[in-house]
Measured scan of single mutants.
Amino acid sequence: RKEMTAACTPRRRIINLTSVLSLQEEINEQGHEVLREMLHNHSFVGCVNPQWALAQHQTKLYLLNTTKLSEELFYQILIYDFANFGVLRLSEPAPLFDLAMLALDSPESGWTEEDGPKEGLAEYIVEFLKKKAEMLADYFSLEIDEEGNLIGLPLLIDNYVPPLEGLPIFILRLATEVNWDEEKECFESLSKECAMFYSIRKQYISEESTLSGQQSEVPGSIPNSWKWTVEHIVYKALRSHILPPKHFTEDGNILQLANLPDLYKVFERC
Rank of each mutant, 00 (worst) to 15 (best):
M4L: 10
M4Q: 05
C8N: 07
R12Y: 13
R12Q: 12
L17W: 12
S19M: 14
L21P: 13
S22F: 14
E26A: 10
N28Y: 14
E33N: 11
L35N: 09
N41F: 08
S43C: 09
F44M: 10
C47K: 01
A55I: 04
Q56T: 04
Q58T: 08
Q58C: 11
K60F: 12
L63C: 11
N65M: 01
N65D: 06
T66H: 02
T67K: 12
K68I: 08
E71I: 09
E72P: 00
Q76H: 14
I79F: 04
I79H: 15
F82V: 01
A83F: 08
N84E: 09
N84A: 10
F85C: 08
F85N: 13
V87L: 08
L90R: 00
L90Y: 01
E92H: 06
P93L: 02
A94T: 04
A94L: 05
A94C: 12
A94K: 02
A94D: 01
L96C: 03
F97R: 02
L99W: 01
L99Q: 03
A100Q: 00
M101Y: 13
L102C: 03
A103I: 02
L104Y: 01
E108V: 05
S109V: 15
W111V: 05
E119N: 07
G120W: 15
L121Q: 01
A122T: 02
Y124P: 01
Y124K: 01
I125H: 01
V126G: 05
E134G: 03
M135K: 02
L136S: 01
D138H: 03
D138N: 02
Y139F: 05
Y139V: 04
F140V: 07
L142W: 02
E143L: 12
E146Y: 12
E146H: 06
E147D: 09
P154N: 00
P154H: 00
P154G: 01
L155C: 06
L155T: 06
L155Q: 10
L155R: 07
I157P: 00
E165M: 05
L167D: 00
F170I: 00
L172C: 07
L172Q: 01
L172S: 01
R173Y: 02
L174S: 01
L174Q: 00
A175I: 15
V178K: 00
V178G: 01
D181P: 03
E185V: 02
C186T: 02
S189Y: 05
S189H: 06
S191N: 04
S191Q: 11
F197G: 00
F197Q: 01
Y198F: 07
S199H: 02
Q203N: 05
Y204D: 07
T210Q: 04
L211V: 07
L211G: 08
S212K: 09
S212H: 08
S216K: 05
I222A: 11
I222E: 12
P223Y: 10
P223V: 06
W228K: 10
V230T: 05
E231W: 05
H232A: 12
H232E: 09
I233W: 13
V234G: 01
K236M: 14
L238D: 00
L238F: 07
I242Q: 15
I242T: 13
L243T: 08
L243G: 14
L243S: 08
P245M: 14
K246H: 12
E250V: 13
D251R: 05
D251L: 08
N253P: 06
L255I: 06
L260G: 08
P261W: 15
P261R: 13
D262H: 13
K265G: 06
K265F: 14
K265Y: 14
E268Y: 14
